[in-house]
Design a protein around this nucleic acid. Structure first.
Lengths: 222, 222, 222, 222
DNA sequence: CATGAATGAGTGTTCATTCAT
DNA sequence: GATGAATGAACACTCATTCAT
């Protein structure tokens, strides 16, 4: 799975029994070519410095062709973000399903997150930089992407179930705790990305630190 | 204090006994006018969408005038970031100095951070959006701003002293823990900023949650 | 010949038997449109006062289109100069080849020069005015244009062959004499251009004067 | 003489017996300061790249001060050209007056020209580059400067007197011959300026070449 | 459908000139 | 008179988007 995750799975999965015509298949492939190119170029240059021509060139299509698949630069960017979240979410779901206890689920969740960002470090840089034209409009646009909401919700469910299993405190709302977990994760990832010397070679090795901190905090055990 | 923090305090503080000439004072005031305008416009539109004309207009100066005080758009932006960090750092130093124990220092640190971001929510949006032209070049430019480094160092010292006073675990490097504290704070601020309904009216009220989570983690006390 | 000299002949001549594709032909035609417009505008206003918008407008293209054919204003200007020199040189070569004696060659050379400048008086004004941004850099750029060097060399060869045929004195280096010939020509042209009343209607009529002066000098024959 | 030639001699010489008031003298000195600075800056950067601020700075005055002495950039430039011509003309008049024969006068004329340009090579570069904004307007402006007309006339008179003394042929109008003499001179100077290696160390040494060429031409004596 | 040349509004920046002090 | 900060029009160049082929 995820082999060709860039191909909008919605189209494929919605009608699982239906064989796609060559026309449709080609269309999806081209769309995925462009997304791949956009990922590369955005990661390299950031949203504003990346030009549609750059992306078209990288995808080996003509400029106009890109506009057949994406309404405008913004839509292309948003599709890309959505794509990445979708990939991540699908992995998280699949892997956490294998766990039996809340703690295992948390472990897997953290490990898979770190591993995902490690694998996608280039495109991940995108998330840390300029989002979009009018941030006021667009940041909310980003956060309202259905998939992004789904992702937050997934983490919340995870926390909730952990609270149910008495692993996590329930004196604060799951939402708040979920956001904190996400932020600890992001912090680790961000600092790892920033550290160009990559003194911590392996991001995944941080799993234990994250889990420990999340559960026990930085306070000294007395 | 910090009433007119936008005026380069360096100039003022270097010669504390000396009254600035009217010329000098005017110059600083104009500079601060422009910084204030830039803060407003950048916060509203983000770096790329903000134009120098927007900023000049907001400051009620002509376009060219802005260039008398800042070499280019980049320098203006960087000055602004530096300014904000400087303000924050100066508050943090002043307030934490009043504390007697590590725990008090941490409490104050967290409270003052949240309060600062609450007061400066508009400009804080800037930090969450596009940084600069070529992210690869410029983000590093940002992170290497002396004041930014000082800020990180300040937090690290805070953690170290907390480790010394047996408040914080010392089985992880202070740097790692410091970054985590910063990121928990940022996470709370970010989610508060994002929540347009401001269900949590008062950001400062989150102080206790942050301190609790940071010290004790999300794990259920058994 | 030279009917459409503004079209880069290099491209055409390199593959004399090959019909250019419509695409290529169009491209060359557009390029030549722009050069023609640039010639007009530069001649009228000089390098600095001519704006790219002026030129685009004159060529009936959009501003950006000009940049598809020329990297920047500088490149456009240099291409124009090169073009004019190329035209002149090609005429000179073709015509002087018909001569049998050194004197005939000189006569033809002078006549064709004057006639060329007469036909191109507008664009020739360009040469007499500002060259380029930083003269120190750019004038040398101009003088190092391959075609300009070729032109000087052509005149030098002419003088050398005249020395060989005992028409021209050989007690001075050909180079010095060549530069003098060029400058006498330029002087005549310049003064003719300057004379707005055009009392000397026909520049070509000056041929005899130039040849006489060049060979015999202004001294009274005794 | 020429010690302070940059001071508008008109003012001083027009009323030779009158002592200038300190006020007037200061004014003239400031004007000359600015002209000197302008000469330096224009020579270095050319008309367009030189800014009024550059010139003011070089002259150690404020920007606005320059405008008290010269209406605008154009007027400053024109004054400078006028100044230089005036200096040259005054030298030429003074020196040629010492000659007894037409040939001597010619010799002196040529020698003093070359020597003048050698001494003023930096400012002379100005003449060879961009003249002025709208060349159509300004080149004629330049050529209609009273002093420039006087200079041309001076050379014409020189040629006329040479014709009268049977040194120079009279089958062509003096004006034409005068222009040719000027152009031979300019050619030598220009090529010398261009030759950065300065293989011909001493421009004045070219006097004989110029006189020889002018009188006898490049034709081989038979 | 795919192309890529053409478009032209929009940007950062400069600099001659003015004018309040 | 002298100053130099302020002005704002102007310019080269870019790039998202369109559309004729």
């Amino acid at each position: 799975m995820n082999v060709n995750s860039l191909v909008e799975e919605r189209f494929i999965k919605d009608k699982p029994g239906v064989l796609l015509s060559r026309r449709q298949r080609d269309k999806l492939l081209r769309r995925s070519d462009i997304l791949r190119a956009a990922e590369h170029v955005f990661a390299l240059k950031g949203y504003y410095e990346a030009t549609m021509q750059d992306i078209a060139k990288e995808a080996q299509y003509a400029t106009g062709t890109v506009y057949l698949y994406f309404k405008d630069k913004d839509a292309l960017y948003l599709s890309l973000v959505e794509q990445k979240y979708k990939d991540l979410l699908s992995i998280l779901k699949e892997e956490t399903a294998k766990a039996h206890t809340a703690k295992e689920r948390l472990e897997i969740f953290i490990r898979e997150n770190l591993s995902f960002f490690e694998r996608n470090q280039n495109s991940f840089r995108i998330f840390f930089t300029e989002r979009n034209k009018r941030q006021t409009i667009k940041v909310s646009k980003l956060h309202n992407l259905p998939i992004v909401l789904q992702h937050r919700e997934f983490v919340m469910d995870l926390i909730k179930s952990s609270q149910d299993e008495d692993l996590v405190r329930d004196d604060f709302p799951a939402k708040q705790i979920a956001d904190m977990l996400i932020s600890i994760l992001m912090s680790v990832v961000f600092n790892w990305l920033r550290d160009e010397t990559k003194s911590t070679k392996n991001l995944s090795r941080m799993s234990d630190f994250v889990l420990d901190m999340f559960l026990n905090g930085a306070g000294k055990n007395k």
